[in-house]
Nucleic acid binder design. Structure first.
Lengths: 352, 352
DNA sequence: GCCGCGAATGGAAACGCTTCCACAACAACC
DNA sequence: GGTTGTTGTGGAAGCGTTTCCATTCGCGGC
């Protein structure tokens, strides 16, 4: 494997000059640079990341910490980050915590300290204060994606506004009986609870002069399957809402499927609105607040690279909001008139 | 940041001994090891990955190349790999090609050569011969996941058997008019076309004495949405199959949703079977061949670590088959009797 | 009682880069 | 024409490990 010494020799310069020519740092005459580049190409030279990292303290490698990669939002975010990074010649080290605090501990304690990372992107991480301190302690730029994190720059949508937007759409249509499928929260989580989707729901309900029925605020786990089961219970009850605001599209689709299996028509008997912009929503005609997670990931990565280019000068810590898009499809409509709120005779047998 | 020299000094040994004690390579007396470990803990010493990698040529970092991480199968595989690796203290570098050959080129050409990787896991990659050679040329262990790759160890299910199993289930139920939703193939792909799901379909059809209607072998792109659209066209045609074998669960679910939107009952009017074991299948009662991609990823990672432990002695190149599980749910049944094969009056209006 | 051997240890040379520092050459300025 | 800068270049000192080699020591076998 060719080393920079070989390149230098072939170009008849010192390794110092070769390094400068290849990295673009420091003055090199055009003629020399050209010679070095040619020599490098001829030898098929690829610099050793380890050596470069050791010598310079920069490794062109950034760490991404995610609860998991097999959830829609996380996967999309990782995709956005990955594309942005690969474009810029950066590597991406992936750490999944599996949502477990043990794993998270381990990752933060050992892995991130090996000085192989120029920066870190925690995605939708729920950190304890200690964990957050540890993260900051590695002394590298950090840009979070998802919820806000005090003291660091984060990129994400305005969760509260999204919740209010979705709910307001329903109240605007005239719905007065609205249920909310929310996602469970980790009690250890650290970042401010202000600005949640549920908060937006509550605000929009209040603004419409509606009262939130506690038994209609249902905690699910962000999965379609769980939401399906909970929605089925909710909708099978003697008294049921005319609309459901689900905190994610997967939960919304689960709700729609549950409704269908109960013989309810969407949107005639039940309106459903979600948040995400999941591809699945298209097939079932889901009205939703699209949030473009790829874009969020890419934005976070871009911010990070920008900081690294400016020699680590950190951006002002804040939550950078990216725009959402309200997509009205066919899962929402005016509520049924009270007389017609009967259950249709079940036509499709439920599976299982 | 504490270096190994500090540890050595505190433990009153040389850096050589400290290194041996910490890494477990080479003889160290129990007493000395104990002292070094204590000193290391006291200083909170974390070895520099770059330095260790540079000096030893091993980096405890393995590369995973995936078309993307926002597809069910890939995400699950990455999850399996990630968990296995983190357990063993290995880092994981993620490279996404986005399915584009340009990106793939770039990844294989530049990124993998930086000598930061101990091994590589290409996932479901369709490589040209040149690309494969390049991959092999980096001289590191390789274990693929997904399709077979000549010359390297791969882990995956028996695609052909899975296809035949699913199809055989349908023919066994008495279906004679069976369509197949398959996934597009990249013409540049290199690995043998033997052993595809479609091949299994064809074999099972032949074994049942059935003829494959070319217009009923429909190429889709593995997404639910595309399959939905194609299934709708297929099922709306004057003459339609009584059963569909979709090469993935997402496509199968798309088919089911399309059927429902057309007023067809599943399984009464149409049987649908898929491959994957996608969570979504549970909600719609999909009969499927579950393939446990996490397990495949974990297995591949384990094989790799095993090779690395045995000092790189590569396993015999072959395709290691992992077991599948045939899950019968409620999307398949005997075909409707000819007389009853009428279309039910559409009850649910299709969205949009 | 000596030799040889293996275990434990230390010194120092890598590993392959980056970058500090020194120096030469040359331009520009008063 | 000296002084001051600027630009291009090379020498060499790291960066923080691992590992080769040499050395010492204790011990069993003859």
């Amino acid at each position: 494997m060719a080393s920079i010494r070989d390149v230098a020799a072939l170009a008849k310069v010192s390794t110092a000059t070769a390094s400068r020519a290849l990295s673009g740092r420091g003055p090199v005459s055009p003629a020399t640079r050209e010679r070095v580049l040619r020599a490098s190409a001829e030898l098929g030279f690829v610099p050793s990341a380890n050596a470069a990292g050791l010598a310079s303290g920069r490794s062109r490698n950034i760490g991404v910490i995610v609860p998991g990669v097999d959830r829609w939002f996380f996967a999309k975010v990782v995709r956005g980050i990955s594309e942005e990074l690969l474009d810029q010649g950066y590597d991406l080290s992936l750490y999944t915590t599996g949502g477990s605090h043990d794993h998270q501990e381990k990752v933060l304690q050992d892995y991130l300290l090996r000085q192989r990372l120029d920066a870190v992107v925690p995605v939708a991480l729920e950190l304890t204060t200690r964990e957050r301190e540890r993260l900051v302690a590695i002394g590298r730029p950090i840009v979070g994606v998802g919820g806000a994190m005090p003291g660091t720059l984060t990129v994400g949508i305005d969760q509260e506004a999204a919740g209010a937007l979705a709910t307001g759409h329903l109240t605007g249509l005239g719905h007065r009986h609205i249920a909310h499928l929310t996602a469970g929260k980790d009690p250890h989580r650290d970042f401010g609870l202000t600005g949640t989707r549920q908060g937006g729901f509550e605000r929009a309900m209040a603004q419409a002069g509606l009262v939130v029925r506690p038994e209609w605020v249902i905690t699910s786990d962000f999965t379609l399957n769980d939401a399906y089961a909970r929605a089925k219970a909710l909708l099978a009850a003697p008294e049921r809402p005319t609309a459901v605001f689900a905190a994610s599209d997967e939960m919304a689709v689960g709700t729609i499927l549950a409704a269908r299996d109960l013989g309810l028509r969407v949107p005639d008997d039940l309106s459903v609105v979600g948040i995400d912009g999941h591809e699945l929503g298209d097939v079932v005609g889901l009205t939703t607040v699209a949030q473009f997670p790829e874009r969020q990931g890419a934005r976070a990565a871009a911010r990070l690279l920008q900081q690294l280019a400016h020699d680590g000068a950190p951006d002002e810590p804040q939550h950078e909001t990216v725009a959402t898009d309200f997509v009205v499809r066919s899962s929402t409509a005016v509520p049924p008139s009270p007389g017609s709120r009967s259950r249709r005779s079940a036509a499709s047998p439920s599976p299982g």
